[in-house]
């Protein structure tokens, strides 16, 4: 459905993407994860044909992105998307629907995006979350086979975000393919069948959230302590300790080995928990970021 081979892109002297390769199949949700400035939006723009790569190939449905035929089968929600302020939700959807030969029924679009009760509200009067929903509605109004969503739940509250997740899952159940970028690890974990972790212009890992965790073979140990972070790091310098709210937390590949070291040192490790590394921890390890305190 979509194949990217040896994709390079740079802005001036700055290389943003360095040899990206992947392909995606129909009916799945794909997530592109990366810190700010790692090239997620550039990658989406290249896949949409908004940018031309400096090197490499992108093929969607066997054609170049941006061709008329591809445009009829692709929907997109970009991070920027200011619509005419004084046109209503219904007017905006009608005009975008008119661009396509076989658009989705407007009633269906409104129901799926949860905008049924806001038909006559001008764009300028919509809340941030509703604006995002309208942009999402525009992305799907052409009944596309593949939908690109660049940070779809940005600026949404928890409830609106979860509604958006349910909507995206509903699209997947209809057989649509979704490619999204996100900053929210729980969003990626909850929605995506496959994730691509982008760091310094390269895909450093890919797979499902579970596969990525296994790939990292990392566990997180946490227990109650009265010691400071500095003290723990001095006593056990092999590991990177963090202490928050009286809990010591450490990530390691072999929890049994670390625990035996701790027990031998006389630690009681009250309220001990050992968990597989979360997607966030995996992501942070792969992108060499430090956990926020």
């Amino acid at each position: 459905m979509l194949t990217i081979s040896n994709l390079h892109h740079r802005y001036g002297d700055k290389h943003v993407l360095n040899g990206i390769n992947f392909s995606i199949q129909a009916g799945q949700i794909y997530g592109v994860l990366g810190t700010n400035g790692t090239g997620k939006t550039t990658l989406i723009n290249l896949m949409l044909g908004r940018l031309t790569p400096n090197q490499g190939e992108i093929s969607i449905f066997g054609e170049h992105p941006g061709s008329h035929s591809v445009k009829t089968q692709v929907g997109a929600m970009l991070q920027m998307g200011g619509l005419p302020a004084n046109l209503t939700v219904l007017e905006q959807l009608k005009v975008f629907a008119s661009y396509y030969d076989s658009p989705r029924a407007l009633d269906n679009v409104l129901a799926v995006s949860g905008l049924e009760n806001h038909l006559d509200v001008p764009f300028s009067k919509l809340s941030g979350g509703l604006k995002q929903r309208l942009l999402f509605a525009i992305a799907i109004v052409g009944n596309p086979r593949i939908v690109f969503l660049d940070e779809p739940s940005l600026a949404m509250d928890v409830t609106a975000r979860q509604q958006m997740w349910r909507t995206i899952e509903q699209l997947k159940n209809e057989g649509k393919t979704i490619v999204l970028t996100t900053h929210y690890m729980e969003e990626a974990e909850a929605l995506c069948d496959k994730l691509f972790i982008l760091n310094e212009g390269k895909i450093v890992a890919s797979g499902s959230a579970v596969q990525l965790g296994q790939q990292m073979q990392m566990s997180e140990i946490s227990f109650l302590t009265d010691q400071s972070c500095e003290s723990l790091n001095n006593q056990f310098p092999k590991w990177q300790w963090q202490v928050n709210n009286g809990y010591a937390t450490v990530r390691c590949e072999s929890p049994s080995k670390l625990l035996s070291v701790l027990f031998n040192a006389g630690f009681e490790c009250e309220r001990l928990s050992v968990k597989p590394a979360s997607l966030e921890q995996t992501f942070l390890s792969l992108t060499k970021q430090e956990l926020a305190a």
Partner: peptide, 14 residues
Amino acid sequence: ERENGLLALKQLSP
């Protein structure tokens, strides 16, 4: 419309 992204959305459509 170019700056706020409306033109981009229209260009992505057929």
